[in-house]
Design a protein around this nucleic acid. Sequence first.
DNA 1: GTAGCTCTGTTACAAATTGATACAAAAACC
DNA 2: GGTTTTTGTATCAATTTGTAACAGAGCTAC
Lengths: 224, 224
Amino acid sequence: MYVTIPTVTAAQSAFTPLATTLPQTAEARLKPGAYLYYEGDDVEWLYQVTSGVLRLTRLLADGRRQVIAFGYPGDIVGFPSADIHHTDCEALTEVRLQPFRRSALESGEGDPKLHNALLQAALREISGMQDHFMMLGRKSASEKLASFLCVLTERVGVDLGAYRSVTLPMSRSDIADFLGLTTETVSRTFTQLRKSKIIAIDNIHTIIVQRPTALLGLSLGDRD
Amino acid sequence: MYVTIPTVTAAQSAFTPLATTLPQTAEARLKPGAYLYYEGDDVEWLYQVTSGVLRLTRLLADGRRQVIAFGYPGDIVGFPSADIHHTDCEALTEVRLQPFRRSALESGEGDPKLHNALLQAALREISGMQDHFMMLGRKSASEKLASFLCVLTERVGVDLGAYRSVTLPMSRSDIADFLGLTTETVSRTFTQLRKSKIIAIDNIHTIIVQRPTALLGLSLGDRD
DNA sequence: GTAGCTCTGTTACAAATTGATACAAAAACC
DNA sequence: GGTTTTTGTATCAATTTGTAACAGAGCTAC
């Protein structure tokens, strides 16, 4: 899951199971904190998230960390490069996954439809990452956090009548490492959004969006 | 072309023409300033850069710009998502290109080897972009510019005996928009590198790397 | 060729944003 | 329930940006 232009991203990423005519491999399950794979591991499987949330990270030698993506239902994770994984992948919640053999992407023998679905997912991944470049390189702290909350709200938010609620299973430092900020800046920006009554913080992992239009405006760069 | 860990990136990206048993489509040529495609165009072709340099950009509604990548010899550009291009692509120099029909990537009929080569290029693209996330999100201005110069030096630098020279066909603002900085910061950082005798600036588009090891150190986060 | 113009790049200084540090409060974990 | 970890907030510092002035390269017209 990547973030820049909330409405566009949200629309295309609804959960659709990948089409295949073959019998599916049995579903995999992960408990919170469990790792699906590590950077450097050989790639044997790709996975489509069925339920729950994954976190993909990369580390620099000096300990700096970048969260590459969060894996939400419908997302495909585990694309190989030179046969190996290039991120760590950890479950943030209970996660259910549909595994696909790497050969389903790379050889296409057996099931051309599945092959094409995985290829299209890889191409969508490239486009989504390009969006995220814009976010990391050119957006301010408040634009970044507003974009993040907008996309999550549209994609996995719950309708509460007047408002909308969204659950954030990740920590503040996960959000910071995803958006290229420090945890303090994330915290400060949450507080600003709360004080301007755009959001309410029900508890640390539950945000109520009170003024979605204002949040969208902020994400697009309207001045506070 | 993406940038984070100089040595790794440089090694894998030497120019290798994609293997195909079919007759090749005639080479395409672009003059400096010519556009290969625009954001929103239908994708009919992918291209491998044979010689010259391309610049891929995305724009935000308010005019902010992100340079997504520079296309150097060996790079594949034009991966579609939802059938359309998601960046503008302009030639910075005279460019020669080998076109491949989009169907060579997507259907694979005709030439399985070419299909696989294009797929592997797409997967390398994903990994390269993940590297670049780290750069945009977690590196300082001097680390960014040092990384950029390191990668370019290794990939397209010219050996001058003791030193190494590299040509930068792009403008300072292109570099800024690639690294998520302002042109002033890029300019100031060039000056710092010059004053500390790590590089010399022969002319605006030609850099001499005098102390490659110091440059590599800077790119990895060693304190000035 | 060259005078004048435009665009790009450099530099200095002020301002703003973000980051670092410290500590209190809240939450999560045994 | 006590300990550890995470989060929030404040203050201060550092980095980066914004502004502005100027230098210089390249282009055009003459």
